[in-house]
Structure formats: C-alpha cells, structure tokens
Design a protein around this nucleic acid. Structure first.
Lengths: 224, 224
DNA sequence: TTCGTACTTTAGCCTCGTCTAAATTTAGAC
DNA sequence: GTCTAAATTTAGACGAGGCTAAAGTACGAA
C-alpha cells in the first residue's frame, strides 16, 4: 500500500493534533495547522475515510484508525531519523532541519529507513528530544514534565522542546539552553510566571512563562 | 526558482536523450523514456518553453536552454551523490539504488546537496562510474570507450556501465564484472560479436556483443 | 511533384488537490 | 425549547498533469 504526499501530510497532522488535544480532531484544527481551507480538509477526510485510515462522521471530527495511526507513526519515525542524519552526519543545527525532513519523510522504500536507522546506531530521540518509534511503531514516552511546572529550588535536565520554530530554537541557542543542560529554578515571578534559572557556571537567566511552557525537563530526584 | 516534480523529470529526460542522441530531442523519444503519451509530452513542452527551460518549435523537437541544462545538471548531481550515499554509507548494492535516488533527487534545499557532497568526500564518480557534476555543474568526462570497440589482445579496466537496470547489474555481479576489474580480450566471435574475456585469476568469460556494448572501459596503454 | 506514412499537435475529457461561496448542522445562550 | 453564531459540508470551479481520438505536418518514395 502507498499513499500520496497530501494524504501522508494529513495523516501526520491528524496524529499530531490527536496527540496534543485528543480526539476527535476537528476539521478547522487540521485546516489551521496545514495552512489550508476547511473545505479542502473535508474533501480529503472523505478520501482518507474511504481508505479506512480515519474514522469520520460528518460534523463530528475524526480519529485515526489503527491502520492510519500505524502509517502516521512510520512517517514520524522517518521524519525524526532524517533529522538525526542531518544534524549528526551533515552538521546542521537543530533549527535548520525541519523543512528538509518534511520532504525526506515522504521517500518511499521498503528498506531505506531501517538501513538509515542502523547507520545512525538506532537513536531513541531526535535532535529536539522527541522519541523515535522503532520499526514496529513502538517508542518510549519521554518524561513529560514542563519546565513551567517545577517549583523554586528544584533541579532538572532539559530533555525536549515543544515548539520547533527556528526563531524559538535560535533563542534557546543564544541562551545556552541545549538539550542535556542542568538547571535549577531560582525564582518564579508571581506577576507573569517568568522564571529565573541557574545554568551551570553562568549568570542567572530569566525566561518567560511562555518559554518555560515549551520546554520538557526531567526532574533530578535530589535524594530518595 | 523552483520547479515541480514533473517538470524536473522532463528536464532530466531531455538532458539524457540529448546527451546520447544529440539535439533536437523528439516528442516521442521523451514519451518512450518516460512511459507516457506523446500528447502529454507536447503539453509539458509548452510549459517548459514558457519558462525558458527549453527551445521548442512545433513539430521540430526541443533542446535545453542554458537555464534548462543548468537545472538538469544539478538534478544529475543530486541523483548521483545520493547513489553514492546509499551505496557507500547505507550498504546498498549498485543495482538497488536507482529508484530511491530518483526520489531523493527532488528534495529542495539550498544547502543539502553541498553538505552531502562534503560528507561523502566529494566523489567524482557514482557507483555506476558516471561522473558527478560539481556545484557549478562542471564535471570530468569519463573515458568513453565501449568494451565492444576493443580488439583481440587489448587490455582494459572496467570504468562504467551504460545500462542501469537491476537485471543487467546483477548479471555483472554474478560474473565478477565490477568497476575497476582488469580484463583482456581473448577472442571475438565473428558470428555475433561475442567476446571471450580474461578476468584476473579466473576462467575465461564469454559475454555477448550486446553486453559488451553496455560497458565502458579505459584501455591500458601497454607501452608507448 | 505528389503521396503515404509516421510523427506531432489539438481538442476534449479525467483525477487530484485546492479554492470560494452558499447551504447546512451543531451547540451554546437565553 | 428556540435562536443564533460558529463550525462544517456541499456545490461548482480551477490548475497541474495525464489520457484518447482526431486532425495536422513532415518527409521519403515513386
């Protein structure tokens, strides 16, 4: 079985929305994320339902079928592995790879992605800290705590980013906020939820609550 | 500037035909190679002419403009570099890479292919012995002698293949005819132009004239 | 110089994926 | 329980890229 580029893009979008907002996924949510019109989305939903990739009831949104979810997961696997390749092998920065991986994920081959996976030594996370599904579609959930949920005095390691825009990633670069850094909450400003952080060996850094809500961390269990 | 997938495929096809049979390139030659209908070709030729990628006069075939040739050359560069990647890094055999490279060559990025080129250490020839254009489109012509043009007693090194089908390449593999092998013409059968070859350390090998006309060799100048 | 045939183009239609405008449904407010 | 605003779907159209059938052109043979 093989699907068109447009069909694959819809599947991935539905998957991503369902992951964040749950099901059912609305027509307009899809249209927003894909920069297209609701009417166009409706047309495509009929086709995807026809192919049993989604469950669709008029006026009531959609959810992926098992087959649809499986395909979407493979697309995500491909996307994330290609991102690893671009960063680890070709030396790209993490803010430059999304567009290219967006194209590479549509390459059709029964063997390519598994060979790439082996070549990269089977990474479990991509350059943004997102987990990479294995060939069967399974993946380890990342430890999902937002930096904004920590309290004063707590220590944590930055393990992922929610937002993938290059402006956001460049902002992180400029403030030495790379995956793996150790940080501690020094202060939470009551007015707007801004955080003052201690980063190893550096002056304290002030980030907005908006930024803190885009950062996934793994809390360091000081003593148990 | 950016072109559609179909436009790129036509450009590459026209380039390939022009390279072998010269200009002008006929509508039906394009249709044959692309597995499509002459009427469809005519439609696309009008579009390509409109965009100044080809010179087109009704009923008289086409040739690439400077811009068209430049673009086609870049596609060939991308195709051949990706083939190198697939063989050298992912361990594919030379008979498996064409289809995948055919897709990869359409990836759009200003920087990707040059980074890939550097990563591969700027190879000058692809796995089939075809020359790889550099970023400016320039490339060294391969030494273009066909094995079928040699005479008895002459020695040569296999440097390239004309035919890229997997059945042909697998046939070569089975007979230890890999790029770089040293061979000598032992006999030319007058009846059908078959050749008897000596390959290093092996029993003599008989190949048809048909096969010999698909193999490029560099003659070894025994003494000058 | 005129045919006949092979090649090419035109005309008209199709599917895919998109759009706008209009109609319909849902669901919350009262 | 209506009513209305927002969301969704339908209807009809379009451009890209392909097809078939029919018409037009080129060119070698007589």
């Amino acid at each position: 079985m093989t699907y068109t580029l447009a069909e694959e893009d819809y599947l991935k979008t539905i998957y991503k929305i369902a992951e964040r907002q749950g099901v059912p996924v609305s027509t307009s949510a899809i249209a927003d994320l894909m920069q297209t019109r609701p009417a166009s989305v409706t047309d495509m939903l009929k086709k995807l339902a026809e192919k049993d990739l989604i469950d669709y009831k008029r006026y009531h949104g959609v959810s992926l079928t098992k087959a649809g979810a499986r395909w979407a997961t493979q697309l995500i696997r491909k996307h994330r592995l290609w991102e690893c390749f671009l960063v680890d092998k070709l030396g790209y920065n993490w803010d430059e790879v999304h567009e290219i991986a967006e194209q590479l994920e549509h390459i059709q081959s029964d063997t390519l992605i598994d060979r790439l996976d082996d070549y990269l030594k089977n990474p479990k996370f991509d350059p943004h800290g997102d987990p990479i599904p294995d060939a069967s579609g399974a993946y380890r959930m990342r430890y999902q705590i937002l930096l904004s949920d920590l309290e004063i005095g707590q220590q944590a390691i930055l393990v992922g980013v929610r937002e993938h825009t290059s402006t956001f990633l460049q902002y992180l670069d400029q403030n030495n906020l790379a995956l793996g850094v150790n940080l501690e909450i020094l202060e939470v400003l009551p007015y707007d939820g801004s955080l003052r952080l201690r980063l190893a060996e550096e002056n304290p850094l002030l980030i907005s609550g908006q930024v803190a809500r885009q950062l996934y961390v793994r809390q360091i269990t000081s003593a148990v």
